[in-house]
């Protein structure tokens, strides 16, 4: 059955001025388990649906965590929800982050803006299973310090793994880095040839980062991007999320750079 299942908001954390993280628990039977990188179609009654990537894990195992930025009518409605409110959820859809590709090597996570959200469950899993990898590093770019997601958690993560953060526009009192996210690629430790990179952020930022990483020696097949196009159905039937040969709701959103590079190079593909 491909209709939204009712979920209840059980937690709501304000991340930034326009972004909140919702924790949802099923009202009835839970949907099949979501893996990091996959997304749900989340329905805000009565306005409509938006695709939202999983942004965290819940202790119950049946819950879902989504971080949503209010940019349109549906996301604004979602961002305005309070515990007890209901939403509809369909999923899981799409490809997960390929964590197996990184086994034994370094993990480099590069996030831009709200792109940190889909990477968070991957980071948490990697931190929980340190023996599977050589190392984990996180690089984060944001517009301003106030736009940084999960700020407190970043500090906690930084105690367990190298975390580098930069902003485009500092605010008074900001003592961290200023500049584009690619300038941080030299500030965290990883062995390029033995690294798997996971990028999520604006497409322009991911393209520049992927090129820089490949230039440094990270294999293109191990640079993963989470791509975005219009999605209506999530089930591969509406045709709207096509990127050349890819149906991003099915063959994505996570796509390796060796596939994505040529596609993203063609304008308006």
């Amino acid at each position: 059955m491909n209709v939204p299942q009712p979920y209840q908001v059980v937690g709501r954390d304000r991340e930034t001025a326009d972004t909140v993280t919702l924790t949802l628990e099923p009202v009835g039977d839970p949907l099949p388990a979501f893996r990091p990188g996959q997304f749900a179609m989340v329905y805000a009654f009565p306005r409509g649906e938006v695709p939202l990537s999983l942004s965290g894990t819940t202790p119950s195992g049946t819950g879902l965590t989504h971080t949503v930025r209010a940019v349109g009518p549906v996301t604004s409605a979602l961002a305005g929800l309070r515990p007890g409110h209901h939403v509809g959820v369909r999923g899981p859809f799409g490809t997960p982050w390929d964590l197996a590709a990184a086994r034994g090597g370094d993990l480099l996570l590069v996030a831009g803006g709200v792109g940190l959200a889909p990477l968070r469950p991957l980071l948490l899993r990697a931190l929980d299973e340190p023996r599977d990898h050589r190392g984990v590093a996180l690089v984060v770019g944001a517009r301003t310090p106030a736009d940084l997601l999960y700020r407190d958690q970043c500090d906690t993560w930084a105690q367990r793994a190298p975390v580098a953060v930069t902003v485009d526009r500092p605010e008074p009192g900001w003592t961290g880095n200023v500049g584009v996210v690619t300038t941080l690629l030299d500030r965290v430790p990883y062995q390029p040839r033995n690294t798997t990179a996971y990028l999520c952020g604006p497409e322009v930022m991911m393209r520049a980062t992927a090129r820089d990483l490949v230039h440094r020696g990270v294999p293109a097949s191990r640079v993963f991007l989470s791509l975005e196009r219009t999605m209506r159905c999530g089930t591969g039937h509406c045709g709207q999320c096509q990127l050349g040969p890819l149906l991003l709701c099915r063959d994505g959103p996570v796509v390796a750079w060796d596939r994505a590079e040529a596609l993203l190079a063609v304008r308006e593909l």
């Binding site: 326009d18 709200v114 500049g179 584009v180 952020g201 930022m205």
Partner: peptide
């Protein structure tokens, strides 16, 4: 060149509101 590219990227305000 690298700083110019960085400056231009930031000029685009990629993380800003759509």
């Amino acid at each position: 060149g690298r700083r110019l590219r960085g400056a231009r990227a930031r000029l685009l305000d990629l993380y800003g509101p759509p």
